[in-house]
Each structure stands twice: as C-alpha cells, then as structure tokens.
C-alpha cells in the first residue's frame, strides 16, 4: 500500500513526474491552479508502489509519498 499527495498549488505542470513514474499512473489533469498551471494527478492509486521517483524528479517539492 502506498500513496502520493500532489500539492496542486505548488505544481507547475512541468510533467516530469509523468515521465518518471514507472507505472505510468501520473497524468496531467484538466484542472488549472491559481497560477494558471495544469497540474499533475495520479490515476489508479492502487498501482502506486511508493517508489518516490515522482517526488525525486519534482522540481517544486510538490509531492509527498506515504508507504
């Protein structure tokens, strides 16, 4: 069991986490945050292994990982 929380207001929509995720379960959402960025979101949370690759790659320290 693992989960990630993406801080929607810190996310700048750079998409680096989407390419880092080995399970390909992070995608870009339709949501715009206050700064006008499309943010990243996780799909299929049950597949998340908590590897933290997304958090490692995130340049905005917007992702927390729980395991």
């Amino acid at each position: 069991m693992a989960k990630i929380i993406i801080d929607q207001e810190r996310c700048k929509g750079c998409e680096l986490c989407t390419s880092a995720c080995p399970k390909h379960i992070i995608i870009m959402s339709e949501y715009f945050n206050a700064k006008g960025y499309h943010t990243a979101k996780q799909i299929k949370p049950e597949e998340c292994t908590g590897c933290a690759f997304c958090a490692l790659t995130c340049p905005d320290v917007a992702i927390e990982v729980y395991k």
């Binding site: 069991m1 693992a2 989960k3 908590g50 933290a52 958090a55 490692l56 320290v61 992702i63 927390e64 990982v65 729980y66 395991k67």
Partner: peptide, 8 residues
Amino acid sequence: MKKVFESP
C-alpha cells in the same frame, strides 16, 4: 501509512 518523502 508513514510519510516517506516530504519537503526537508
């Protein structure tokens, strides 16, 4: 679940 990755 424990937090394993957060802002330092």
